[in-house]
C-alpha cells in the first residue's frame, strides 16, 4: 500500500495541518514507511484468534450516576487562549 500526494494533502487538511509541497513529499515517504511496517503484521496467522481489546484482561469499569465534579469554571478557563466573561472565546465560526 502506498499513499499518493493527493491523499497526503487530504490527510493534512483533515488534521488541520498546512503542508508545503516539499513537506507533502517528505511526509508521504514517512507515512508510507509506517504503513509498510504495519503491513508486516499481516504476515502473522491470526486464524481462530479472538480480537484482543487490551493487554490487561479486565472489564470496563463503570461509575455510579452521581455528580462528583463541576463548579470550577475559573480553573477550566485559566488555560484558555482567550475568554470572554464566562465563556471560552474562539475566532468567529461562520455558518
Amino acid at each position: 500500500m502506498s499513499l499518493d500526494p493527493a491523499t497526503v494533502r487530504r490527510i493534512g487538511k483533515l488534521a488541520r495541518i498546512r503542508l508545503a509541497e516539499p513537506e507533502v513529499v517528505a511526509l508521504g515517504a514517512e507515512l508510507n514507511g509506517i504503513l509498510g511496517w504495519i503491513e508486516q503484521l499481516n504476515e502473522v496467522d491470526i486464524d481462530g484468534i479472538e480480537p484482543l481489546a487490551g493487554a490487561a484482561q479486565m472489564a470496563l469499569r463503570w461509575r455510579d450516576d452521581v455528580v462528583t465534579e463541576g463548579g470550577m469554571r475559573d480553573a477550566l478557563l485559566a488555560n484558555a487562549p482567550d475568554r470572554e466573561g464566562d465563556f471560552f472565546a474562539v475566532p468567529k465560526v461562520v455558518e
Partner: peptide, 24 residues
C-alpha cells in the same frame, strides 16, 4: 436522562450558568 454525564461526574441539568457543569 441521567444525573451525570456519559464519561464524567459533571452534572447534566439544563440551564446552568455557562461552563459550571464541566469536568476536566
Amino acid at each position: 436522562v441521567s444525573r451525570a454525564k456519559l464519561f464524567s461526574g459533571a452534572a447534566t441539568a439544563f440551564g446552568a450558568e455557562p461552563n459550571t457543569q464541566v469536568s476536566f
